[in-house]
Simulated scan of single mutants.
Amino acid sequence: MNDLTFDPKLRRLDLAARAAWLYYIKRRTQDEIAVELNVSRPNAQRLVALALSEGLVRIRIDHPLTKSIELGERVRERFELTFCDVAPSGARGNDAPSGVAHRAAELLENFLSPKTPQVLAFGTGRTLREAARLVSTMSRPDHKIVSVVGNLSRDGRASPYDVVMRLSDRVGAQCYPLPLPVIVDTEEECAILKAQRGYRTLQDLYEQADALMFGVGRLDEHAPLLIDGFITPEEFDATRRLGAIGELTSRSFDASGRVIDDAIARRLTAMELRRSPTRPTILVASGREKAAALRAALVGRLGNGVIIDEDLAEALLCDAQ
Results as ranks from 00 to 15, higher is better:
Gln118His: 07
Val119His: 00
Leu120Glu: 01
Gly123Pro: 01
Gly123Ala: 03
Gly125Phe: 05
Arg129Leu: 05
Arg129Glu: 04
Ala131Cys: 03
Arg133Tyr: 09
Arg133Glu: 14
Leu134Thr: 03
Val135Arg: 06
Ser136Ile: 06
Thr137Arg: 15
Met138Ala: 15
Pro141Arg: 10
Asp142Ala: 13
His143Ile: 08
His143Glu: 05
His143Arg: 10
His143Val: 08
Lys144His: 10
Lys144Ala: 11
Val146Leu: 06
Val149Trp: 00
Gly150Met: 09
Asn151Tyr: 07
Leu152Trp: 02
Arg154Val: 07
Asp155Cys: 04
Ala158His: 08
Pro160Gly: 04
Tyr161His: 12
Asp162Leu: 15
Met165His: 13
Leu167Met: 10
Leu167Thr: 09
Asp169Glu: 15
Asp169Val: 14
Arg170Ser: 10
Arg170Phe: 08
Val171Ser: 13
Val171Arg: 14
Gln174Val: 10
Cys175Gln: 12
Cys175Arg: 14
Tyr176Leu: 12
Tyr176Trp: 13
Tyr176Gly: 07
Leu180Ile: 07
Pro181Thr: 07
Val184Cys: 12
Val184Ala: 09
Asp185Thr: 13
Thr186Phe: 12
Cys190Ala: 14
Cys190Met: 12
Ala191Lys: 12
Ile192Tyr: 14
Lys194Ala: 09
Ala195Glu: 10
Ala195Thr: 00
Gln196Ala: 12
Gln196Thr: 14
Arg197Lys: 13
Gln203Gly: 07
Gln203Val: 00
Leu205Val: 02
Leu205Ala: 03
Glu207Pro: 06
Gln208Ala: 09
Ala209Trp: 01
Asp210Glu: 04
Ala211Ser: 02
Met213Gln: 02
Gly215Tyr: 03
Val216Trp: 02
Gly217Ser: 08
Gly217Arg: 05
Arg218Gly: 07
Arg218Thr: 12
Asp220Ser: 09
Asp220Lys: 07
Leu225Thr: 02
Leu226Asp: 00
Ile227Asn: 03
Asp228Ile: 01
Phe230Cys: 00
Glu234Arg: 10
Glu235Pro: 01
Phe236Glu: 03
Phe236Ile: 00
Asp237Ile: 06
Arg240Val: 12
Arg241His: 11
Ala244Trp: 04
